[in-house]
Design a protein around this nucleic acid. Structure first.
Lengths: 146, 146
DNA sequence: TTCTTACTTGCGATTGTTTGCAGAAGCAAA
DNA sequence: TTTGCTTCTGCAAACAATCGCAAGTAAGAA
């Protein structure tokens, strides 16, 4: 596992400053173990230092996202989720009926990515896609939400 | 062109009520001619009746989206865009560097849709996808935002 | 036509996220 | 260590979008 000090060093190497808040926030993202909301991450940070502002958490998460250290994912439920980018690239299938989330390996998207590059000259950012739809258990029952 | 009264009739056919607000909002979506924000649609409605509330516009747009009468698209700029669903199903490639928007025909997505169904039993909602990335003119110049 | 009832609306409050600003603090150089 | 520059933070306010509630109203029944 990549130690989080290495990641913090990447911040400084790119001219950003290494602050206690950033340290705590990055550690909280790591400890959350994936798919954590900004609010959840912030609550975790507050346990260590109750003065850290929520906007600082948001700004830091954005910085880490820009640097590629964390992934931000919009699962379609109105809140963004964050997770460390150290694991293998993967995607999500989200059932709009029961909310079930399935992982999707990247190689399923590679043919599409290749075709977009070949036919449109477009280099798609397939870093952490989310596809909405109906899962196996839900799309047999056609319409009628619970 | 599908007349908007036909669309309003579809509302009533599904047990929803046909109110002047819904009439105005649907007409505003039509007049906007695609990719209009909720706020822009609301401003258009206010010209006809300044008492219509923004939340009514949002609720109506959500209803129309659920019924498949309009498409909601998140272009990645923080605000959702709405357009009538009467045209052919299509998708967008959005360049994150220069903002250029390209149309993408649906048949490019069909192999992926089929594979998700076959391998995962997942019926993906590929109604109006948006893929972020770099267009032909922008991804030659590697990094360095303007 | 009037009645009735469930669906809609306007309003205000709330959520999730972003931004502007003044003071605080990291970091490189002296 | 101190200085000085610049970035970062906390605070408060703005923002897009949603929600709860009481009053309003469409549409079928009588």
């Amino acid at each position: 596992m990549t130690h989080h000090y290495d990641l913090l060093e990447r911040l400084r190497a790119q001219g950003h400053r290494l602050t206690p808040q950033r340290d705590m926030i990055l550690l909280a993202v790591h400890d959350a173990g994936g798919h954590a909301s900004a609010e959840e991450i912030h609550q975790q940070v507050l346990l260590q230092n109750p003065n850290v502002d929520l906007s600082t958490t948001y700004r830091t998460l954005e910085l880490l996202t820009e640097m590629g250290i964390v992934y931000r994912t919009d699962m379609g439920d109105g809140t963004s989720r964050y997770e460390l980018a150290e694991e293998e690239m993967h995607h999500h299938l989200v059932c709009r009926r029961c909310g079930r989330v399935m992982d999707l390996s990247h190689d399923v998207l590679e043919p599409l990515q290749e075709r977009l590059r070949a036919d449109y000259g477009f280099a798609a950012d397939f870093t952490h896609m989310v596809f909405q739809g109906l899962c196996e258990g839900c799309h047999g029952e056609s319409t009628g939400e619970p």
